[in-house]
């Protein structure tokens, strides 16, 4: 299990990196490498050129910006996990990290790399969906932003063009009073999710004002489902509503079967976890 040979380019700056991408249509980015190198070791992928962006310390930051936090794409998972800013402005993201990988992998893996890898069972894309995150992409031609809802396209597929580098992720701060929840069932702790459900919930009195619910592990990408959120908006924030949202989730998703979880299991989990995660979120609405 050894990777196939590749050309190696060490980018010294963001400009360096985007120039390398522009130059070589076969080039692939090497961030923390915690998914990519594993896939290369089994030769599931054989990139011709790797542009190593680990030297881009300019992309390693977490800061408050425009009513939210901005996370540099090369920020390591462990930095995000232990960040007080993240805990304050995006407690859902901090919570999700209890489920994400293991220490040594988090020390190397990057937040941006994880999102761009777009594994359908990965937790962070689902969190990005419900928090309304925005991706800042840069190429030699300039910068653009893509909403998380438009970013994830399929298994390992995103809206980022080949010549684009994700440089920053912007996440709006949790609105005052908003509750949140994250629940997952995986074969082992730290494994990819069979099903994970993530939500944010805002109440107006005893009524759901807004709810966003996203799922991982049940489709070719992290997804939200309109019928689930419709089952919540404007409804009383109670068990019956949450159960209705769960039932809507069961119907809305179209999961496949694999060795760990068959289709029925994923539907069951989507329903149960939706109900539970909303109840947890309600308890956090202040």
């Amino acid at each position: 299990m050894k990777p196939a040979p590749f050309r190696y380019v060490r980018a010294r700056s963001v400009d360096d990196a985007v120039a390398a991408l522009a130059r070589d249509p076969e080039a692939k980015l090497l961030a923390g490498g915690q998914s990519l190198i594993a896939m290369m070791n089994v030769r599931a992928v054989k990139p011709e050129t790797l542009v190593d962006i680990n030297a881009l310390s300019a992309l390693d930051y977490i800061k408050v910006k425009d009513g939210g936090i901005a996370i540099g794409a090369m920020t390591r998972h462990e930095t995000v996990k232990s960040s007080p800013l993240v805990a304050e402005h995006c407690p859902l993201l901090a919570e999700a990290y209890h489920w994400i990988a293991h220490r040594a992998v988090r020390n190397r893996g990057t937040y941006g790399g994880n999102l761009c890898h777009a594994d359908p069972a990965s937790e962070n894309p689902a969190v990005a969906l419900v928090t309304g995150a925005t991706m800042v992409l840069k190429s030699a031609k300039g910068e653009r932003t893509v909403a998380a809802d438009d970013f994830f396209k399929g298994v390992y597929q995103t809206a980022a063009r080949h010549d684009e580098l994700l440089i920053e992720v912007r996440i709006p701060s949790r609105p005052k009073g908003q509750g949140w929840g994250f629940m997952e069932v995986s074969p082992r702790k730290g494994d990819f999710a069979m099903t994970a459900v993530v939500c944010t919930l805002e109440l107006a009195g005893a009524t759901v004002k807004t709810a966003r619910v996203a799922y991982a592990g049940i489709a070719d990408r992290a997804m939200r489902f309109a019928p689930v959120e419709a089952a919540l908006t404007g409804k009383p924030a109670n068990e019956a509503t949450f159960a209705a949202a769960g039932a809507a989730a069961r119907k809305a998703i179209n999961p496949s079967s694999d060795f760990h979880a068959d289709e029925a299991m994923r539907r069951d989990l989507a329903e149960t976890l939706t109900r539970r995660v909303l109840a947890a979120a309600k308890a956090r609405c202040t």
Binding site: A264, M265, D268
Partner: peptide
Amino acid sequence: LTQNVIRRLVR
């Protein structure tokens, strides 16, 4: 008795 199997038995 994986999660999948236990859940199937209950279902």
